[in-house]
């Protein structure tokens, strides 16, 4: 069973909720560091949740290229495809 991009996006939004202290509306263009004001450590903690939710390995190496929720979603989709 493969998840659609939208399903992945929705699941990631769910995981972001506890980190979204200011209740910002999340879109694919939401930038972690700017819109959600998450520091790099918090993004790593979120990444850990994503790994367990989707049962994938998300290497820290790709973090510098992931600024937005949409980029995160695409990365998860790719990693799921390679599983």
């Amino acid at each position: 069973m493969t998840l659609t991009v939208d399903e992945i996006f929705d699941q990631i939004c769910e995981l972001i909720k506890p980190f979204n202290k200011k209740n910002v509306t999340i879109s694919k263009d939401t930038i972690f560091s700017v819109d959600l004001e998450l520091d790099s450590l918090t993004v790593m903690d979120l990444l850990s949740e994503i790994e367990d939710e989707f049962d994938i390995t998300v290497p820290l190496n790709i973090l510098p290229d992931l600024e937005t929720v949409g980029q995160f979603t695409d990365a998860v989709q790719k990693l799921l495809a390679n599983k």
């Binding site: 850990s48 790994e51 049962d55 290497p59 820290l60």
Partner: peptide, 19 residues
């Protein structure tokens, strides 16, 4: 490839190594 596990958490490490 760099993978990070929860501080001092054996179960969290185990999951990552298994994956």
């Amino acid at each position: 490839t760099v993978v990070r596990f929860k501080h001092n958490n054996p179960e969290n490490l185990d999951k990552r190594l298994a994956r």
